[in-house]
Amino acid sequence: MERIFVTGIGTGVGKTFISAILAKALNADYWKPVQAGFADGTDSECVAKWLEGTDSVVHPEVYRLAKPASPHIAAREEGITIDIENICSQIPTNNRTLLIEGAGGLLVPLNNSTFVADLIKELGAKVILVSRNYLGSINHSLLTARACREMQLPVIGWVFNDQYLNYEEEIVHWSNYPRIASIPYSENINGTFINTHAAAIKKQLEELL
């Protein structure tokens, strides 16, 4: 079973809808093991709606935390500690490709000693990086790329989204990670939007895998 971990250069960069696009393109299952904040619905619920009518299975979270904060803080408020061994013991088991969505970026703490990047290594997953175009995203993107190299994480490439300025080529050049796709900004992300962009990136994604 192929495991692909979707992480971002920060919070709110579009990991969830891009995970849905990737899951659709690869006919993969989706899993977000740690959800922090669900008053407005969970990421898994959004993905399930966007992938309705497909073969993709949206697997339940291991940790579902109420507070919309860093996972280690949200867990602490509920009197629990996130354990990456516990997460790894609950990996969905079947022969399908598994898209795993992280919380925030690589160095988001899961507890007092481990980070999202440590979970990626324990899961043995390949990595897709999500970058949203905004002022400052070059710095955030290249810091993320450097952290991946220092931690020897196997990166497949970048998915960019939104339009601010056209500096995706520079990020690809300086990071030396390929571009998988550029997804345009939309205020109406729905199943049609997901299907359209999944079809557009399917070939490039499969070649990189």
Results as ranks from 00 to 15, higher is better:
M1Q: 06
R3M: 11
V6H: 07
G12P: 03
V13D: 03
G14P: 06
F17T: 05
L22I: 15
A25H: 02
N27H: 09
N27K: 09
W31S: 12
K32M: 03
G37K: 04
A39I: 13
D40V: 03
D40P: 02
D40M: 06
D43F: 14
E45T: 07
V47R: 09
W50V: 11
H59E: 01
P60K: 03
V62M: 00
R64W: 01
A69C: 01
H72P: 06
H72W: 07
A75K: 11
E77V: 10
I80G: 00
D83T: 11
E85M: 13
C88K: 15
Q90S: 05
N94C: 12
G102S: 14
I120R: 07
K121I: 12
E122C: 09
V127H: 00
R132K: 13
R132F: 01
N133W: 02
S137Y: 07
S137M: 04
S141K: 01
L142W: 08
T144A: 04
E150G: 12
G157Q: 15
G157H: 14
Y164D: 00
Y167W: 15
E168M: 10
E168S: 06
E169H: 06
E170D: 02
H173T: 14
W174H: 15
W174Y: 15
S175W: 05
I180Y: 04
E187S: 00
G191S: 11
G191F: 07
K202G: 10
K203H: 02
